[in-house]
Simulated assay, not measured.
Amino acid sequence: MGADSIAQAVLFFSLLLAASLWDIQKRIIPDSLCFFILLTGFLTFTSEKLFGILLGLPLLIAALLKEGGMGGGDIKLTAASGFVLGFPLGIAGLILGLCLVILWYWGNRIVRKAERKALPMVPFLGAGFLCVYLFDAGEAFL
């Protein structure tokens, strides 16, 4: 793993953590964080990674179909993370993140009999993206 990859990993992790905390506290993701995540993708840029931006498309469609269901910050963060990861890894991270949010939601509903309310998505999406990123980085060492 080169210096660019290490710098990217540290920045990607830090920016996703900051976005997660911001989403938990304020229920909004600043455009600047999404932009900086996008910029980290240029540290290990390949033309194939451009297709990762398309990861935001399913979330955009969901937002258009159900008002209040998905925020614009979630869409932008997913597209930026897709650019960092590339399309195949980004899809895996998105699926993992969405599975985590579903498990958390239903676990809370069952255990606590919690009411239905919207959850901040970025902590779950970020966890999915980071797991896939770290798994891919681990594969590079093997």
Rank of each mutant, 00 (worst) to 15 (best):
M1H: 09
M1P: 10
G2P: 14
A3P: 12
D4I: 13
D4T: 15
I6R: 14
I6M: 13
I6S: 12
A7Q: 10
A9W: 12
F12I: 11
F13T: 15
S14G: 05
L15A: 11
L15Q: 13
L16E: 11
L17F: 14
L17N: 11
A18S: 03
A18T: 13
A18M: 04
A19Q: 08
S20I: 10
S20N: 14
L21P: 09
D23S: 09
Q25T: 01
K26Y: 15
R27T: 14
R27P: 12
R27A: 13
I29N: 02
D31N: 14
C34P: 12
F36K: 03
I37N: 14
L38I: 12
T40I: 15
G41E: 10
L50A: 07
L50G: 02
F51R: 08
G52C: 13
G52E: 11
I53V: 11
L54C: 04
L54R: 01
P58T: 13
L59E: 02
L60R: 09
I61R: 08
A62P: 04
A63R: 09
A63C: 07
L64W: 11
L64D: 09
L64P: 10
L64N: 11
L65I: 06
K66G: 00
K66I: 08
K66L: 03
G68F: 01
G69T: 07
G69R: 14
M70W: 06
G71Y: 13
I75D: 10
I75L: 06
K76D: 05
K76H: 13
K76W: 07
L77V: 08
T78D: 11
T78I: 10
T78L: 13
A79N: 11
A79F: 06
A79K: 03
A80Q: 08
G82N: 02
G82C: 01
F83K: 06
F83T: 04
V84D: 07
G86M: 00
G90Q: 00
I91F: 04
A92K: 06
G93Q: 03
L96E: 02
G97F: 01
G97E: 02
G97A: 02
L98C: 08
L98Q: 10
C99Q: 09
L100M: 10
V101K: 05
V101D: 02
V101P: 01
I102Y: 00
W104S: 00
W106H: 02
G107D: 01
G107R: 01
K113W: 05
K113M: 04
A114D: 11
E115R: 10
E115D: 12
K117Q: 07
L119T: 12
L119D: 07
P120R: 03
P120D: 02
M121C: 06
M121E: 05
V122D: 05
V122C: 05
F124L: 00
F124T: 05
F124V: 04
F124W: 04
L125G: 09
L125H: 08
G126N: 05
A127C: 02
A127E: 01
G128Y: 06
C131D: 09
V132I: 15
Y133I: 04
G138W: 00
G138L: 00
E139S: 01
E139T: 02
A140Y: 12
F141S: 00
L142W: 15
